[in-house]
Amino acid sequence: MSAGSSSAFAARGLAPYLFLAPAALFALVFLVGPLGFALWVSTTDWNGIGAARPVGWGNYRYLFEQDPFFMRSLLNTFLFAAGSLIVGVPLALGIAVLIARSRLQSMWRMLFWLPMITNIVAIAYIWRFLLNDTNGLLNRALDLLGLPGPDWLTGINWAMPSLIMVSAWMTLGHNVLLFLAGLNEIDHSYHEAAELDGAGPLRLFWHVTLPLLRPTLLFVTVTSLITALSSFALMLVMTEGGPARATTVAGLYLYDMAFTDLRLGRASAAAFVLAAIILAFSLAQFRLLRRGGVERH
């Protein structure tokens, strides 16, 4: 054993740790540290400038018992998430099924993908212009048909459905891509066998494709739900939560609480509540969709 080889061994022993050092340091400074800090802030009345007084569970209790808008913002969040799932997932599945059986797959996929590479400010303004009460393309088209156009973004009852529509449009390509990946994994022999048995396209989809697509369906539903529950960029840029808080989702509410009102304690508590809700939802959904039926194919 020469000194050289043992030092080489020492270097190799240290190497993985050096490779991991940046990530480990980052985890400490930008993940563990901030999470601990936020947890502590959520038990104080800190306003970002002065001293922080401990208030225990006070902020959490305040959110549920006294805060006039927190429950409303949670309701808006659920409304937005439910709408996005109900509109977005079946639409994406349908389009993916159509694309999977067509030529020029990558061209179709790319077209539906366009909004996914567009910044949210551009998306918000594209749709603000399209949905403008008087000059927007949509209401002008409705006008030509002799139909009264709704006040898409300024009407209290219309703003949330409008946002759901824009969000579905924006995320469609992502879900189409995932469904396509799932569809391409399905063994063709299943379809051929069913077709030989005389199954029509609808029965084929319902009894063969859909059950085999279950893992993808689960994945798409869970990720869409998590994304929808935690998203607020679209609301911030497009409606700023209005009109009359109709589109103030929980994420936006706590963001404003922190950076406009400087109520950091309450905002941090709200952030943990929302994170806990998202975690609970995704766990429940996994259980529900896993139970009974194909676990893996």
């Binding site: 540290g33 901030p34 999470l35 800090f37 936020a38 802030v41 905002a267 941090s268 952030a271």
Partner: peptide
């Protein structure tokens, strides 16, 4: 595990840190 923490949870503490 770290991928599970939503960004809205980190944005406030990182800003002030």
């Amino acid at each position: 595990g770290a991928q599970m923490f939503p960004f809205f949870l980190l944005i406030i503490p990182i800003f002030f840190l």
